[in-house]
C-alpha cells in the first residue's frame, strides 16, 4: 500500500517537473521569438530617440549654463 503511494508521488513529480520545464521552455522560446520580431520590425527607435535627445538637451543646457555663468563671472570681475 505504502509503496503504491510513493509511486503516486513519483508520478506527480514526473508530471510536475515536466509541466514546469515545458512551460518555462516555451516561455524561453516565446521570449526569443518576441525579441527577434521586435528587433526586426521595431528597431530600437522608440527608446533610443527620446533618451538620446534628452541627453543631448541636457548636455546643451549644461553647456549653456556654464557659458552663462562664466560670462557673468567675467562681467562682474571687469
Amino acid at each position: 500500500m505504502e509503496v503504491n503511494i510513493i509511486g503516486e508521488a513519483l508520478k506527480f513529480m514526473l508530471l510536475g517537473m515536466g509541466v514546469v520545464f515545458i512551460f518555462l521552455y516555451i516561455m524561453v522560446l516565446v521570449i526569443k521569438a518576441q525579441a527577434y520580431i521586435i528587433e526586426k520590425y521595431f528597431p530600437d527607435k522608440v527608446p533610443a530617440i527620446p533618451t538620446s535627445s534628452i541627453k543631448d538637451n541636457d548636455e546643451k543646457t549644461r553647456v549653456a549654463a556654464v557659458i552663462a555663468a562664466v560670462t557673468e563671472f567675467r562681467k562682474n570681475k571687469s
Binding site: I6, G16, M17, L24, Y25, V28
Partner: peptide
C-alpha cells in the same frame, strides 16, 4: 536562465515524495 527557475522546483516535488 529561466530554466534554472524550473530546476529549483524540484524541491517541491522531491519533498512531496
Amino acid at each position: 536562465t529561466a530554466i534554472l527557475g524550473g530546476a529549483a522546483q524540484f524541491g517541491i516535488f522531491g519533498s512531496l515524495v
